[in-house]
């Protein structure tokens, strides 16, 4: 048997399949008039705590829904269930060993359980991870990153992919500033080094500082026109 080698030019984007699905999600969101936030951070930065404060304040003002992404457990969804908003938990662990991010297809699988027509804003709480979620579009209108000051100043330089893709950075846990050696000016300088001029809000989900500003930001974009 004679074998010959052939070379074939492909030129296909590795994430094209995901991007196409993300676009399909986006079309669905647009048709329903739902503004979608992809909320990303490291584990423990305070995404769920921020959502709790947000749901408290936005009750009666903005119809919110939440898609919770986690590798395992429904702990976050359980925390938010008391707000009685449309809520679905997507666990990524049936994927290949438990994916560390949500992709467009996983989000799509959760959408069947959400009534988009009853929502002005859908917040997709991504899996806590500072790298992978940034790579996968899910059909969102905007990307918001929660960054906790307990993570140190230098992370924008180490993980530029996510910081570069964020439209807004919520600098969380600022109530701890007086107890930490965290240098806020240095952090904001690093943030501007990777994403010049990106919007930022100093916040504490614990004390409520900055939460009104964040809610206004969300309302400006998500309120039905």
């Amino acid at each position: 048997m004679h074998r010959t080698a052939v070379k074939q030019v492909v030129m296909e984007g590795v994430l094209d399949a995901n991007d196409a699905l993300a676009q399909a999600n986006r079309t669905q969101f647009d048709e329903a008039g739902t503004y979608v936030v992809n909320l990303m951070s490291s584990p423990g930065a305070g995404k769920t705590a921020l959502l709790e404060r947000t749901l408290e304040r936005m009750h009666g003002k903005l119809r919110l829904g939440v898609l919770e992404g986690d590798v395992q457990t429904t702990l976050d969804a359980d925390r938010l269930s008391r707000f009685h908003v449309p809520l679905v938990q997507v666990n990524t662990d049936p994927g290949f060993g438990g994916e560390c991010h949500l992709d467009a297809n996983m989000v799509r699988s959760g959408l069947s359980e959400l009534s988009l027509n009853d929502m002005d804003v859908l917040v997709i709480e991504n899996v806590g991870n500072l790298v992978c979620p940034a790579e996968f579009k899910v059909g969102e209108n905007t990307r918001v990153m929660v960054y906790s000051i307990t993570e140190g100043e230098e992370k924008p330089l180490k993980y530029p992919l996510m910081f570069r893709s964020a439209d807004l950075v919520l600098v969380n846990k600022v109530d701890l500033l007086e107890h930490l050696d965290f240098d806020l000016e240095q952090f904001l300088g690093y943030l501007d080094a990777v994403n010049p001029g990106v919007e930022r809000i100093l916040a504490s989900a614990r004390t409520g500082q900055g939460v009104d500003e964040w809610c206004s930001w969300l309302e400006e974009r998500g309120a039905p026109s």
Partner: peptide
């Protein structure tokens, strides 16, 4: 960039 540029394959 993040794309598959080309493939080499065996043709029988």
């Amino acid at each position: 960039e993040l794309f598959v540029e080309s493939l080499e394959m065996e043709e029988v």
